[in-house]
Structures are given as structure tokens and as C-alpha cells.
Design a protein around this nucleic acid. Structure first.
Length: 715
DNA sequence: AGCACGCCGACT
DNA sequence: GTCGGCGTGCTC
């Protein structure tokens, strides 16, 4: 981890503005001789280290630097590094010559250092107050936040906002429990299914820092396996941190930890527990009373004392991307923590992202995988029904499902629950002609059409309603709408097996688990309940929609969703069967059939390396109105090996996706430029973009341009 | 983003 | 002379 910009923040990199500032400073010095740590309004200052270095809680990039304040005597004791403070900040506070004016508002900040003197030449304002003597920000956390800010071209204050939860006075007043002594080292148990598993635990228990990309076998054992890795780390006298994608998984790992370690040794940090309880848990961790943490993405910054292991589960899940500036990703932040704290690293998933494959290929982490024979026995039998096959087979079309699928459902229901994975509503694929498959386009602007409900057709670009669509190629007026079809198929399945109960799990109503009795469970991706004893069979109808998306990750994402649903099905040795409706020649489909997510990721990685795509290259995006993007790129001093792609009009957002801050205003066409650099120039790219953005904002902002490193969706 | 400072035209 | 327009630049 680089420690550039340690002092006085990471703001202006360019020499020009700094030199100007220097000249101004000298002029001012000449005018106001000897502006030493002078008392502000003559108040008494702390005798020792009277200067407090403060990071102010303003996320703006050009204020990403430390500011020095004088420490009044009465705040001396409480004003320790790491506490929250209040300071006057703003142009008004500067005018201290008449000792009366106190312009500038009070804002929050963190005190990061006490010093003997300031290198700021003007008179210092005094700290307005110490919010609480609780030292919430450690030196380690500050360094991590700095590294994350630099990695993502963001400001320290923005990252700190993610890393330190808002204060809650009631929670702070309560004492934290006494810390527990280290537990005994747990047995390896199901880790023995992986040849390197027991050795990995051993290394953790011995105080080592092993790093692994773990391809988990399908089934429910992963929670206990993570708990055992945590237990081994605790046994070495160190702490551990586990980050999972959602509250349900967090609850499962929490239960496994309680089972293995008992109550009181670990904390559960999720948004669901509410602010007071959450802050109390967080404080218990910060105070060193609790050494193990499991939580969702905000927990990636949990201030675990003497960190020995970080774990990320299912790194391909999109909820591991934070949606607040600067949009850090859990996997990347935990990589930075592992490097900085020299602790163990475990990335676990039933699937495999390209980034995970890269960690192995670069040698940064070791693979932790089971033997092929073990994988084959644990995974269900996967069969495919091709799209073309379905279209040709008249009988299947009439029944809306091929006979193979019917057969799998009928057989499965004899021995247990059957899972039916359907696409999310509003997750509209491109509509196409039902006969010749020509994409359906808007008559006004040729944009793609969507069907928000079954009776209405609308253009996703211009919004025009299409009332009388006919295929431009063959003239038919029948459209193919796979989403609607899949939902109806699920309903028809229910009617076809009237004796069997049908349960649904989706966005608004997510089931956690279902009993082992025969039933039909219809679920959207990510909301699949676990079944007691595993599902007897699964039917995956999500393929066509997923794979038709013009996204670099479409294949990886489809495979991930399929594998995570299929992982809930009994192994082949117990008769578990999966039928996926997708073209069998496609690479992700073949990878599912062979149950080879790593092979898929490795091949994707090779292809991306060849094409110069991330994560082999580092990419950043600049989004805004066309003139603004152009001006930004002109002004930015990009590294010499940077390559600018575009700008091109911003792809239209998925209909149904909620609007996020930073989205273009409705009706405005924004453009997006991608900037890419070869491996090794990522830091330089981030620094250049940050400097350009800071300079822009300092000059009054103007047209906003949104910068993002590693954008999650690049066409 | 705010907010003060400064260098221009109309006014008692 | 002086009040106040808003353009420019700083915030310890």
C-alpha cells in the first residue's frame, strides 16, 4: 500500500496551483509578520501539543486535506487522536483580525493527530468542541480509509462516512462486555473435503496469514466452514471479519458461529439491527471486547483489533459494491486490509469471478478447491434444453415447457421440494418477433421496446407507446416475451400438480427456508430459500433474459445465479437434478453442465487480457453532459499509457431499476467516456482523475462530471 | 457549497 | 464620498 499523501491530504498534485498558493502565502506572511500558533481571541491553549490536525466531514475533493486547529486548554484532555470534534469551517472563520467575527458554520470532523506546531502560516481557529472522548477512528482505520480513497479517486471524508457509523450517545454510555479469552482450536471437520483445507485452518491457528480463493462445494456446509476458519483465527489470539452479501447469509453465518463458539464472542453487523444496537455492536468491536465480526458490506470497515483473517463470501454478488461515493467493493477493500494488516484472506464462493481467478493467476492467493470426483458427487446432474430445440418442438411449445423439464419436475416432486428459478419482474429482456426473432424496435426512434405489463408496449429510449407493432422483417404481430412466459409457466406448473403446495420467494417477500416435503418453490435469482435436506430438482428459466444482456459480465453473472440456485439441490449421488433452459453451446451453460466455474472464469480472464478489458486493465468512467465530459478529459493530465474510449451516449438504464443519485436528470442525454490503463498504472490513473476533478470543483464546479473507478457495468 | 472580499457604477 | 452590484477565491 502506498503512503503517498500522508500529510496535508491528497489534493492538488499539479505544480501550478501549489506554486501560486506558495506565492500567496509568502505575500501574506510579509503582511502579517509572525503568525505563529497564536491564541485565537486570546484563549488559553493546551500546554503540550497545542495543534490538532483535523479531517473535516466534507466529502468534496478539493477539501481532501487536513486542517489544523488550536486546542483550547479546557479541551486538552478530551481532544485525543481518533475522537469526533466540531470545528468552525468556512470563509468567515478566517476573518479573525478583529477577534469578533465568527463566521463559518460548525461542522463535524475527526481529530487525527496532536502536534507541537502547525505548518499553516495563518492564525489557527480553535476547536469548537469535542463531541465525545470515545476514540472511534484508529490510526489503522485512517490509513485504510486513505488507501481506499486513493484507490477509488475519492475523498477521505467520504470513505470515513462509510467506515465510522454515526454516533449514538445512548450506545456509547453503556459499557462493553469483558473480552473473552481465545477459544480452543476447532476441528477441521468438513474442510477435509478440500485437500488444502486442513492446512489452511492450521496456518490460521498458528498465527499465519494464508490467502486463498475457495471454490466452495454446493450445499449448506459453507457457513460452518467459515465459522471454523474464524474459530481457528480466534484460537491464535487474533480477530476475524466476515462479509457476506445479504442479511440472510449473515444470519446463517451468525448461527454457525454461535454454534461453534457460543454467545458473546462475535458481533453481527447488519443494517437490519437498527442504529443504536448497531453502534453498540460496532463499539464493542472497536473497544476490543469482541474480536469476530460477521456482517454485510458496511462491515468491511469493522475496526477489528489485531485482525488475523478477512473473509468475503460470494464476491460476484452485486451488493458487495457500495452505492455511496467512492463506490468501493468489498473484495478490493478486504484485499487492501489483508495487505496492510498482513492478515489472512479467504474469498469463498460456489461460483468464481474473473477477479478471483486473477488473484490466483497472479499468485496473490492460492486456490482452495475440492477434487473433481468430490465436486461431481456433490453437485446435481445438470441437463440443458436449448432455445432452438424448444422452438422446433411443437408439443413442447404448446405445453410451454419441454418434456424433459416436465419429467424432472414430476420426478423431483416424488422425493422432495422442487425449485423453479424465474427472472425478476421488471428485468425486461429485449423483446423479439415470436416467429423470426428480429428484435422489436420503436417506430419513432428505433429504440428497444419493453412490455411493462402484458397489455402495453413502450420504447425504453423515448417512451413512446407502441399500439400496433408489426415485425419489420416478417410482418407478424406476435412478440416473444420471455419474462411473462416464465411467470406463466410457473403458474401452469402449479396447476399441473394440484396436490402440491406452491410457495413463492422474491423481492418483496423472501422466504428463508422451506421444509423437505414435496412442494413447488418459485423464486427470483438471489431469493431462493434453502430446503431442508436440499431440493430434489431445480428448473432454471432465467437464462434467455440474462444472457441476452449487452454486458461484459452477462455470462459470469448468469453462471453465478444458476450455480447458486443449483447449489441448493441435492448432489448427483442423491438423485439431484437441474434442468436449465438455455442454448447448450454457450460457454456459461457448458460450465454449468460440467460444474466448472473456475474454468469459466479462467477463460474469461484470458479473453479480457487479450482485449484489454478489466480487471486485467484498470478502467474508469467519466459521465456527464457531452461538453462537460469533453472538457474534463481535455483538462485531465492522464498517464501517458492511458487510452480514452468514447465518449458515447450513456446506455439506457435497465427499466425497473430504481433511480440512483448521480443518474442523469430525466430527459437529458448524457455521455460516458471510459479511460483504461494497463496493469500497474491504476494508481496513476486514479490520482490524475482525482486531481482533475478537484481542480474542476475548486473553480466553482460548473457542469458535474461523475468519476468512477472500476464501474460495475461496462457494455 | 457557502461566504467574504474587492473593484466597478448610481446615489444622498 | 459611500452604498452595493456580483465576480473570484478561500476555507486551518
Amino acid at each position: 500500500m502506498s503512503s503517498e499523501n500522508e500529510r496535508q491530504g491528497g489534493g492538488a498534485e499539479g505544480a501550478g496551483p501549489e506554486q501560486l498558493a506558495l506565492i500567496r502565502e509568502t505575500v501574506r506572511k510579509a503582511k502579517v509578520p509572525k503568525a505563529k500558533p497564536r491564541t485565537w481571541r486570546g484563549a488559553a491553549l493546551a500546554k503540550e501539543l497545542p495543534v490538532a490536525r483535523v479531517v473535516v466531514n466534507k466529502g468534496v475533493l478539493h477539501l481532501d486535506q487536513y486542517f489544523d486547529y488550536a486546542v483550547p486548554e479546557e479541551l486538552d484532555a478530551d481532544a485525543q487522536p481518533g475522537v469526533r470534534v466540531r470545528v468552525r469551517f468556512g470563509a468567515g472563520a478566517r476573518n479573525v483580525r478583529d477577534g469578533r467575527r465568527e463566521g463559518g458554520g460548525l461542522i463535524d470532523g475527526f481529530l487525527v493527530e496532536r502536534r507541537a506546531e502547525s505548518d499553516y502560516s495563518g492564525p489557527l481557529a480553535a476547536l469548537a468542541g469535542v463531541v465525545s472522548p470515545e476514540r472511534v477512528l484508529s490510526a489503522d482505520m485512517l490509513a485504510l480509509a486513505r488507501a481506499v480513497a486513493d484507490r477509488y479517486a475519492g475523498s477521505l471524508a467520504d470513505v470515513l462516512q462509510l467506515a465510522v457509523p454515526p454516533r449514538n450517545a445512548r450506545a456509547e454510555a453503556k459499557p462493553s462486555p469483558e473480552p473473552c479469552p481465545p477459544p480452543p482450536e476447532p476441528a477441521a471437520a468438513t474442510w477435509e473435503r478440500y485437500p488444502q483445507g486442513p492446512a489452511f485452518l492450521r496456518a490460521l491457528a498458528d498465527g499465519g496469514a494464508p490467502r486463498a480463493v475457495w471454490t466452495a462445494l454446493p450445499g449448506p456446509h459453507w457457513t460452518q466452514e467459515i465459522a471454523r476458519a474464524v474459530g481457528a483465527t480466534l484460537a491464535s489470539g487474533r480477530g476475524a471479519l466476515v462479509v457476506v452479501p445479504d442479511g440472510r447469509s449473515a444470519g446463517r453465518v451468525d448461527a454457525a458461529l454461535t454454534e461453534l463458539l457460543g454467545e458473546g464472542r462475535h458481533a453481527l453487523l447488519t443494517a437490519e439491527s437498527g442504529p443504536e444496537r448497531r453502534y453498540r455492536q460496532w463499539l464493542a468491536v472497536r473497544r476490543g471486547a469482541v474480536r469476530a465480526v460477521v456482517g454485510t458490506r458496511a462491515a468491511m470497515f469493522a475496526p477489528v483489533e489485531r485482525l488475523g483473517l478477512v473473509v468475503v463470501w460470494e464476491d460476484g454478488d452485486s451488493s458487495h459494491s457500495d452505492d455511496n461515493a467512492p463506490f468501493p467493493h468489498v473484495r478490493e477493500v478486504l484485499e487492501l486490509r489483508a495487505a496492510h494488516d498482513k492478515c489472512g484472506f479467504l474469498l469463498g464462493s460456489t461460483s468464481c469471478t474473473v477477479e478471483a481467478a486473477q488473484l490466483v493467476q497472479s499468485g496473490w492467493a492460492a486456490p482452495l478447491v475440492a477434487d473433481r470426483a468430490v465436486v461431481r458427487a456433490a453437485a446435481p446432474l445438470v441437463r440443458t434444453v436449448g432455445d432452438g430445440e424448444l422452438a422446433r418442438d411443437e408439443a413442447a411449445r404448446a405445453a410451454r415447457l419441454p418434456s424433459l423439464a416436465w419429467q424432472a419436475v414430476r420426478d423431483g416432486l416424488k422425493t422432495g421440494p422442487v425449485l423453479v428459478q424465474v427472472p425478476r419482474r421488471g428485468y425486461a429482456p429485449r423483446l423479439a418477433c415470436a416467429r423470426c426473432r428480429t428484435p422489436a424496435r420503436c417506430g419513432q426512434c428505433a429504440g428497444p421496446l419493453e412490455a411493462p405489463d402484458e397489455r402495453e408496449l413502450r420504447c425504453t429510449w423515448c417512451g413512446t407507446a407502441e399500439t400496433d407493432w408489426h415485425c419489420a422483417e416478417c410482418g407478424t404481430n406476435r412478440l416473444r416475451a420471455q419474462i411473462v412466459g416464465a411467470r406463466r409457466t410457473a403458474e401452469e406448473l402449479g396447476r399441473a400438480f394440484p396436490a402440491v403446495p406452491v410457495r413463492t420467494s422474491g423481492r418483496d417477500h423472501v422466504l428463508d427456508s422451506v421444509p423437505g416435503r414435496p412442494s413447488l418453490v418459485v423464486s427470483t435469482p438471489g431469493a431462493e430459500p434453502v430446503a431442508e435436506g436440499g431440493y430434489a430438482a431445480a428448473l432454471l428459466l432465467d437464462g434467455w433474459a440474462m444472457l441476452s444482456r449487452p454486458d461484459l459480465r452477462a455470462g459470469e453473472e448468469a453462471l453465478r445465479r444458476w450455480i447458486s440456485a443449483a447449489s441448493l439441490v441435492r448432489g448427483q449421488s442423491e438423485g439431484g437434478t437441474v434442468v436449465v433452459v438455455a442454448e447448450p453451446t454457450l460457454r456459461p451453460v457448458q460450465a454449468l453442465v460440467r460444474w466448472d466455474p473456475v474454468g469459466h472464469a479462467v477463460r474469461e480472464l484470458a479473453e479480457r487480457a487479450e482485449l484489454g478489458f478489466p480487471p486485467v486493465s484498470r478502467m474508469a468512467e467519466a459521465v456527464g453532459r457531452p461538453e462537460a465530459v469533453e472538457a474534463f478529459l481535455m483538462a485531465a493530465q492522464l498517464p501517458p499509457d492511458a487510452q480514452v474510449l468514447g465518449p458515447v451516449p450513456l446506455p439506457v438504464a435497465d427499466p425497473g431499476r430504481p433511480r440512483r443519485p448521480g443518474d442523469p436528470p430525466v430527459g437529458e442525454r448524457w455521455e460516458r467516456a471510459l479511460v483504461r490503463v494497463p496493469p500497474g498504472s491504476g494508481a496513476a490513473l486514479a490520482a490524475a482523475l482525482k486531481a482533475a476533478q478537484a481542480a474542476r470543483l475548486a473553480r466553482g464546479g460548473g457542469d458535474p462530471v461523475r468519476i468512477r473507478i472500476d464501474p460495475p457495468d461496462i457494455g
